[in-house]
């Protein structure tokens, strides 16, 4: 709370001291007014963005999990995916957008593809690292009890690598957000609706700077809510409670 207040103070004082125009740096009250006025549209766009991201992230998580399990089961695949990851991971998701448009056309599919592409590599990296850092004894106890393959992965490897999985979800979530906003900023709305990226695009196009700031504030607010209410709660209930990570 104190941090938000301090940032607001900094914002206002920078605006007053710098003497910036409302077009470059609008005052908080104007941004708040814009937030209030466009509440309905912002909510609609945010919901749409969240839907796309939720879907894309879910696909990416399942895909990354399957790939990570495959990597663990075969040395050849392990080598292959380490190389593929080294090539793909640094590639920004948005760079794949032209290809995505060629393949899937202008629309939701392209945006989802970019989201999946952006999130899957960091997810795979975290999951794979997590699986490899499980104490050998725990995996062998699982095998000793007769578990193998998918059952061993589900009952032992998954919970044992939870700290890494949570880390992966955090990175994947951030990458998915970035990808969805960036994709809409570059080529506009996906399908009939638009997400927050499309909202920012429109507001920038119309030179409605308070609207741009309002859109950014919503993105930040969603990020904070997800971090503090979802990830932190998950962490407190699991890895922190069980001292799997340093508190």
């Amino acid at each position: 709370m104190a941090l938000i207040f301090a940032m607001a103070l900094l914002w206002e004082s920078a605006r007053i001291i710098g003497g910036y125009s409302e077009l470059l740096l609008p005052s908080i009250s104007v941004v708040a007014y814009s937030l209030l006025m466009e509440k309905a549209e912002l909510l609609k766009n945010a919901a749409y963005s969240l839907k796309l991201i939720g879907f894309g992230l879910a696909v990416a998580v399942v895909l990354a999990m399957l790939l990570a399990i495959l990597c663990m089961s075969s040395r050849a695949l392990q080598g292959l995916f380490t190389d593929v990851m080294a090539v793909m991971h640094p590639l920004p998701g948005i760079a794949i957008l032209p290809v995505a448009i060629l393949w899937f056309g202008i629309g939701v599919n392209s945006v989802v593809f970019v989201i999946v592409f952006s999130a899957v590599w960091p997810l795979l990296n975290h999951f794979y690292t997590g699986f490899r850092s499980i104490p050998k004894n725990q995996v062998e106890v699982g095998k000793n009890l007769g578990l193998s393959g998918a059952k061993l992965a589900f009952y032992v490897m998954l919970p044992a690598s939870l700290p890494h999985i949570l880390g992966g979800l955090r990175t994947g979530w951030a990458r998915a957000w970035q990808a969805s906003v960036a994709a809409e900023l570059v080529f506009g709305a996906a399908g009939g609706h638009g997400g927050l990226g499309w909202y920012l695009y429109k507001k920038r196009f119309m030179m409605e700077t308070p609207g741009v700031f309002a859109g950014m504030l919503v993105i930040i607010a969603i990020g904070l809510v997800v971090e503090y209410f979802i990830f932190a709660t998950l962490e407190n209930l699991t890895v922190k409670k069980l001292k799997q990570v340093i508190d």
Partner: peptide
């Protein structure tokens, strides 16, 4: 292949599953 008919206790103290209680570890096994 490994199986519960030959149960092994390894070296090292990290053999219990940390996400389960002691009772949970036994019940899971």
């Amino acid at each position: 292949r490994p199986g519960p008919d030959r149960f092994m206790i390894f070296q090292g103290l990290d053999q219990l599953f940390p996400w389960l209680s002691l009772r949970g570890n036994l019940i899971f096994a």
